[in-house]
Amino acid sequence: MEDNPVNRAVAVRLLERRGQIVTIAHNGREAVDLIKTRPFDVALMDLQMPEMDGLEATAAVRASEEGTGRRLPIVAMTAHAMKGDRERCLRAGMDAYVSKPVQAGDLFEAIDTATGATSGGAEEPQAPGPTTSRGRGVVDRAALLSRLEGDASLLAEIVELFLQTAPRLMRDLKLALTSKDAGKLERAAHTLKGAVANFGARPAFEAAFKMEQHGQRGDLASARKAWASVEKEMARLKKELERLVEEHAA
């Protein structure tokens, strides 16, 4: 249950490489409807989804399970990684927690914890890569390839997806600015931030994060000034990703 196509592609491919059959829901309401009508072994639930967020969807699933003797293991997926998020998810009825951008090892450990395959770890997850990366370049190549388990075809796939969706994400951001809609600005910047986080793209991530903060505060004047930085970093990221794919295709 993940509405960002790049995040979704990474999670799906990693799961399929482990022999899992994956069903995709594009929003929280669709996820709940699927779970009510079909049996699943585990659900990965993004906290921020359209129609119904992950916490609301989990509450709806748990309500539908009452009196049935069933309990679907649910893993929370979030880009926030803030202290206390794990406890909030567990209180809402989720069984495990993983931060985005998804790391293969963290994902499967969370699934094992949720399904009871292992005892799992109790430590609070750390913030996602772009905010902690020591790399000063446009893309943290080592972290990116490690996260994809060295899969060059998956790298090419998610870069293509990103390059296809990035213009729309930028249009959404620009439209929110021109329409002076702080709420839409915050959501558009959050989506863009999540997309670039997949590549360990710290400069682009930080530019989108600042725009998201301006939207949260309703500071449209600062957001308009920050637009140039977002444009610049997105252009740099596009060139670097195209170069990276060419190198690994050779």
Rank of each mutant, 00 (worst) to 15 (best):
A195D: 09
G183W: 03
E212M: 12
T165H: 14
R134G: 14
V230Q: 01
G183N: 10
S229W: 01
L154V: 08
A142M: 08
A208D: 05
A226Q: 13
R141H: 07
S179K: 09
A204F: 02
S133W: 08
E124W: 01
L163E: 14
D219S: 04
E123V: 02
Q216T: 08
F162L: 10
V196R: 04
L175F: 09
K180E: 13
K232A: 11
K225W: 01
E206D: 13
P128V: 02
E124T: 08
G200P: 06
E231S: 12
L155C: 08
P203D: 04
G116Y: 10
S179A: 14
V230S: 02
K184S: 08
S133R: 10
M234P: 00
L163H: 13
S153H: 13
L161A: 06
R171T: 15
S133Y: 10
K210T: 05
T132A: 11
T178V: 13
A142H: 10
F162Y: 15
L173N: 05
V230E: 00
R236C: 07
V139G: 01
M211T: 05
E157K: 11
S179D: 13
A182R: 10
R147T: 05
Q216V: 10
D140M: 02
K180L: 12
A197C: 10
A235Q: 11
A226L: 03
S119D: 11
H214E: 06
Q126T: 13
A142G: 07
A189H: 07
I158T: 07
K210P: 00
I158K: 04
T178P: 00
L185T: 02
T118I: 09
R236A: 13
D140N: 11
S222K: 06
A152R: 15
E123N: 02
A166G: 08
R141M: 03
A226G: 03
E231T: 09
V159R: 05
T132E: 11
F205I: 01
R187H: 08
A228I: 02
F199P: 04
R141K: 11
P167S: 10
